[in-house]
C-alpha cells in the first residue's frame, strides 16, 4: 500500500487546486462584456431597464461580486451548481444529460488513438529509415499540423458529400429507427467521422511520441546488455525497449484523458454532436454563467482526477518514481 499516502496527500492538493480554479473561472467569466440580462433582452427584441433589473435581481446578479462568489462557492461545496439562466433547469441535470454523448465520442477517439498510435509508432521505430517509416511520419505530421476543424470538414466532404457513406452531422438519424440494434448501429455510423477526426490528431501525436521514445530507448546501454545476454530480438523489443518507452506515452495518455470532457468543443461544433462541448459553446454566447462554470468545473475535475491516475500508473510502471518510501 505504498501508494496510499500518495493518494491522501494528493486529494488534499486536488481540493485546493479545484477550489482555486473555481474562483478563477468565476472572475474570468465576468470579465467578458455583457451579462445574461442583456442577452435575454436582446433575444426578446426589446426590453426596458426595469425588465433587465428584474432579471438581474432574479438571478442574484445585482449583488456585489464577492457576495455572489461566496454564494457560488458555498453552493459548489454542497454539490449544487445552480440553475441555468436560460434553460431554467439545474446545471447538474444538463451536464449529466450531455455527458454520455461526449464520453462516447472522446472515449472512442481516445481508445482508437491509444491502440493505433503506439502500434504504428513501434512499427515505425523498428523499421526506422525505411519507406514505411518515412511515409508514416509524413502522414502523422499532416494530421498533427492540420487544424482539427479542417480535417473534420475534409472528412465530411469526402465520406458524406461525395461518397455518401456516412452521415455528416448529429448523433442519430432525424427519423428515429426502430429496434435497439438498429439504434446502436445508427449511432455508430454517426460516430465514425467525429471520432476519426478527433482520433487522428491524437494518433499522430502517439505515433511520433512512441517512435521517438523507442528509438531513444533502443540506443541505451541496457538494451545492448539484453542483446549481449543472447535474448531473441522480439524479447529485446518488448521487455526491454517498449516497456521503458511506454512511460512518456502513459504521461501523455493521462494528459489527454483529462481532456475527455472539455477537449471536443471544436469537433462537437463541426459535427453538431450534442455533447458537453457544444453546451459550453452555447452557454458562452448566452452568458449562461452557471452553466459555463459547471462545464469548467467538470473539466477541471476530470483533468485533476486523471492527473492523479496517471501519477499512480507511472509509479506502478516505473519503480524509480517515489521509491524512497
Amino acid at each position: 500500500m505504498r501508494h496510499l499516502g500518495f493518494v491522501a496527500g494528493w486529494v488534499v492538493k486536488a481540493f485546493v487546486v479545484v477550489l482555486a480554479i473555481t474562483i478563477l473561472n468565476f472572475f474570468l467569466i465576468r470579465m467578458a462584456p455583457g451579462d445574461p440580462a442583456i442577452v435575454l433582452a436582446g433575444e426578446a427584441g426589446a426590453a426596458d431597464e426595469q425588465f433587465m433589473a428584474q432579471v438581474r435581481q432574479d438571478f442574484g446578479l445585482d449583488k456585489p461580486l464577492p457576495v455572489q462568489l461566496a454564494a457560488y462557492v458555498g453552493n459548489v461545496l454542497t454539490l449544487d451548481l445552480g440553475q441555468s439562466y436560460r434553460a431554467q433547469r439545474p446545471v447538474v441535470d444538463m451536464l449529466f444529460e450531455r455527458l454520455p454523448a461526449t464520453l462516447l465520442l472522446t472515449g472512442t477517439a481516445y481508445l482508437f488513438a491509444l491502440i493505433v498510435g503506439p502500434l504504428l509508432g513501434a512499427l515505425a521505430a523498428m523499421r526506422s529509415r525505411t519507406v514505411f517509416d518515412s511515409a508514416l511520419m509524413v502522414v502523422a505530421l499532416f494530421f498533427y499540423a492540420t487544424p482539427i476543424f479542417w480535417v473534420g470538414l475534409l472528412l465530411i466532404l469526402v465520406f458524406s458529400v461525395n461518397l455518401g457513406w456516412l452521415p455528416p452531422f448529429g448523433m442519430q438519424s432525424l427519423i428515429p429507427v426502430s429496434g435497439t440494434l438498429n439504434h446502436v448501429l445508427d449511432v455508430a455510423r454517426h460516430l465514425v467521422l467525429p471520432a476519426l477526426t478527433l482520433g487522428l490528431f491524437y494518433v499522430a501525436v502517439y505515433v511520433r511520441l512512441t517512435r521517438a521514445s523507442m528509438l531513444e530507448t533502443a540506443s541505451l546501454d541496457y538494451v545492448k546488455t539484453a542483446r549481449a545476454k543472447g535474448l531473441p530480438e522480439w524479447r529485446v523489443a518488448t521487455a526491454h525497449i517498449l516497456r521503458t518507452a511506454l512511460l512518456p506515452i502513459i504521461t501523455f495518455a493521462g494528459l489527454q484523458a483529462g481532456h475527455l470532457v472539455g477537449g471536443a468543443v471544436v469537433v462537437e461544433t463541426v459535427f453538431a454532436w450534442p455533447g458537453i462541448g457544444r453546451l459550453a459553446f452555447d452557454a458562452l454566447f448566452q452568458r449562461d454563467y452557471n452553466l459555463l462554470l459547471g462545464v469548467f468545473l467538470l473539466s477541471a475535475l476530470m483533468v485533476v482526477f486523471f492527473n492523479m491516475l496517471t501519477d499512480i500508473f507511472l509509479r506502478i510502471a516505473d519503480p524509480r518514481i517515489g521509491g524512497n518510501s
Binding site: Y222, K224, T225, A228, K229, R235, R243, D318, R320
Partner: peptide, 30 residues
C-alpha cells in the same frame, strides 16, 4: 553463443541494467 558461451560486461553499471526490471528477473532471462 552470446550470453551462454561469450559473456559481456559493460562500463556503466548505472546504465547497463534495465531500470524497470528486477535484478533477479534480469538474470533469469539468461
Amino acid at each position: 553463443i552470446r550470453g551462454s558461451r561469450i559473456g559481456m560486461v559493460f562500463q556503466e553499471p548505472m546504465a547497463a541494467l534495465n531500470p524497470v526490471m528486477k535484478v533477479g528477473k534480469q538474470i533469469e532471462e539468461v
